[in-house]
Amino acid sequence: MIETPSKRVSVEPFPVVGRETSINRAVVLSTALAIIDGEGVEGLSMRRLGKALDRNPMTLYRYAENKAALLDGVVETVLEQLVVDPSDRDWRGQLHAVAYGYRRLALEHPNVVPLLVTRPLATPLGLRSPGTLRYLEAILELLVRAGFTPEDALHIFRAVFGFLNGHILNELQEVVEKPEETDDLLRLGLHRLPLAEFPRLRSMATVMAHYDGRDELERGLAILLEGLATASPPSSAEA
């Protein structure tokens, strides 16, 4: 069956954080994340954040100089939750675990996924916050310790996260138009497509209606990691 992760997380009524609670950058960013979870990126503004924190919005600029910096901080908050063990001698097993951890974060914060995919592209590596780079550092260390050259380690990282980002965007897209329908063609709204122009797409309604994100990830990872290990085998350590 199709996995239908919740795309909206309810946000507490104002204020999320009261006057009696001191705030710091972590509190500001976690509150911004809660707003994005509940209302999307478009719902986040300094004014909105100020209301949630019961603070004058102008006081928040000491924690983020503008909305762009705030969004970068939210990405950092999420990515810092991604656990990577660079000392694991089973590099494939560790990357498998990291992939599932990344997917879990994406399903918990679907409104943040576009930021995870696009925000890093807006800033050169050397200017990014440390929290957005620690998982990269740990994965490169994992792969170099496994015997891969630095070049191959970077290639593997890019291949794995390119696949992960694409998979997650596919998994989170709205597929079902009418959940109450029992006919897959109607459930997905594919009956609207002219049969003469889209015979193959219409014929695959049942296949698409029973999409399993976890199974799709598992199959893709198996193919990708096996292919990477074959194409660029590590020079030492057990592959």
Rank of each mutant, 00 (worst) to 15 (best):
G43V: 03
E171F: 11
E151C: 02
I35R: 02
L164P: 08
T31W: 11
T149D: 06
H191S: 06
P130F: 02
R134N: 03
A209K: 02
L154K: 10
G38E: 15
S10Y: 05
P120T: 14
T123A: 03
V11M: 05
T182A: 10
R200G: 11
D37M: 04
A34E: 13
L190Q: 08
T206Y: 01
T149A: 15
Y135L: 11
A32K: 11
E76L: 01
S22A: 13
L164S: 04
N56K: 12
T31I: 10
D72L: 13
G162P: 08
E151V: 14
E226I: 00
A26I: 08
A106K: 03
A26K: 14
D88I: 02
L44P: 10
T31C: 09
K51R: 13
I35H: 05
P110G: 09
V78K: 03
L95M: 15
L142P: 04
L121K: 15
I35L: 15
F14M: 02
P194Q: 12
K178Q: 11
S236G: 09
V117G: 08
I35W: 02
E80P: 00
L228D: 06
I168W: 00
A26G: 06
L107R: 11
M204W: 08
D90A: 03
L105H: 07
L133R: 13
V83Y: 06
S6C: 04
I35M: 13
E141H: 10
V16H: 06
Q94I: 00
A52V: 00
P194C: 13
V176E: 13
A237K: 09
V113Q: 08
R19W: 02
E76S: 11
E226F: 01
H155S: 06
G131R: 08
S129N: 07
V78N: 01
D88T: 12
L188D: 07
L49P: 02
V17A: 12
R103F: 01
L186E: 10
A196L: 15
K51M: 06
V28N: 00
E171K: 01
Y63T: 07
A153E: 06
R214M: 09
V113R: 05
A34V: 00
A106V: 02
L195E: 15
P234Y: 10
P120F: 15
P120W: 11
I223N: 05
K7S: 01
V9W: 04
E42L: 13
L185I: 04
T59Q: 10
L82D: 06
P13K: 14
A153C: 09
V17D: 07
A237Y: 05
A229M: 11
Y211W: 13
A68D: 12
N111I: 00
L127G: 02
E20R: 14
I23H: 06
L201H: 12
Y135G: 04
L201G: 00
M46C: 07
A52M: 07
A69L: 07
P15L: 10
